[in-house]
């Protein structure tokens, strides 16, 4: 049934194109109105769900952020005081700083490694080896982050594989309880994120570089350009969109991280791995400071926007 209709329509489209131009000259007013109305009908269900479970809660978050409320008893309006606390309390500032610190690992490592691999391959990954690579490198994207957290908690444990490898390499003195070490816990959490995002960034960049015209490189090589120059002047500019995507995805993953930290360190030792996402959860549900939690939530949302918008602008496709 549907197929014939589709075919008919397609056929009529081919025949009917001259007809259509005359049709477009019909009175516009009523038609636009009607078009808008119909579109609205199509959009309405999605908008209702979106409004009910995103816009309304977002508005409530803003409202809560102006309150002092334990979530159960009576609330009191305190104006912007919660925001003042978020922006001045040294602990909360460190928590926000930790999230930015994670960007170093979540973003830089996957992109640097991905670029390295992409520039060396400089082409499609074909054949069974390509398939296997793609499959393996995407595994971390498919499993829950919680599982990544559990696996790496075990890797970083005192008796875990990381220490085992260090000892085997004669670097035994470097072995430690990574996730309990003030200096190394945050980098360790960062490495978990890098591990998760590595495959995705690599594949994005490899796919991107395959689209670059090889003759550009050949011409550059004839002009005596070295690898580094090729990377800076050809590859990176050509991949700006792909890199932009990687940066966007990884920066959001770093700033809004929750699952990995929840499982691997619970924010410790001290607050050296505490991130805004986990702090919001704790403040709201364990410490019963719904107002402060909401203020931090709004600040987090704005920070993500502040970071992502410039990236989007830089990576926008050149017209």
């Amino acid at each position: 049934m549907s197929e014939t209709t589709l075919d008919d329509a397609a056929m009529r489209r081919a025949e009917g194109s001259p007809l259509q131009s005359t049709g477009a000259r019909r009175p516009r007013f009523g038609r636009d109105q009607r078009k808008l109305l119909i579109a609205a009908g199509f959009i309405a269900p999605a908008l209702v769900m979106y409004a009910a479970f995103v816009l309304v809660p977002l508005g409530m978050s803003v409202f809560y952020s102006l309150l002092r409320w334990d979530g159960i008893g009576r609330w009191r309006f305190v104006g912007l005081r919660n925001y003042l606390i978020v922006l001045t309390d040294p602990d909360l500032l460190q928590v926000i700083g930790n999230a930015f610190n994670l960007i170093l690992y979540f973003t830089l490592i996957p992109i640097a490694l991905g670029l390295a691999v992409a520039t060396v391959i400089r082409g499609h990954m074909a054949g069974p080896f390509g398939t296997i690579t793609r499959t393996v490198l995407f595994l971390p994207q498919v499993i829950p982050l919680v599982a990544a957290g559990i696996a790496w908690s075990w890797m970083f444990a005192s008796t875990g594989l990381v220490n085992q490898l260090l000892t085997a390499l004669g670097l035994g003195p470097l072995a430690r309880g990574w996730l309990g070490d003030f200096t190394f816990a945050l980098p360790a959490v960062g490495m978990i994120g890098a591990w998760v995002l590595l495959g995705l960034c690599t594949m994005l960049l490899v796919t991107g570089i395959a689209k670059i015209d090889q003759s550009i490189y050949e011409a550059a090589e004839l002009d005596g350009a070295g690898r580094w120059q090729e990377l800076v002047y050809i590859t990176i500019p050509a991949l700006r969109q792909e890199i932009g995507v990687c940066v966007t995805v990884t920066v959001i993953a770093a700033l809004a991280s929750f699952d990995i930290v929840y499982i691997a360190t619970a924010g410790g030792p001290g607050i050296s791995t505490m991130v805004p996402g986990l702090e919001i959860y704790r403040l709201a549900f364990a410490h019963r400071q719904v107002g402060l939690a909401s203020a931090l939530a709004i600040v987090l949302m704005l920070l993500v926007l502040l970071c992502v918008l410039p990236i989007q602008w830089f990576a926008r496709p050149k017209r």
């Binding site: 444990a157 005192s158 430690r176 309880g177 990574w178 996730l179 309990g180 070490d181 003030f182 410790g268 030792p269």
Partner: peptide, 11 residues
């Protein structure tokens, strides 16, 4: 122990 911050109760 030097890794006290990495030892949980059950460890």
């Amino acid at each position: 122990a030097p890794d006290t911050n990495a030892i949980d109760y059950f460890a």
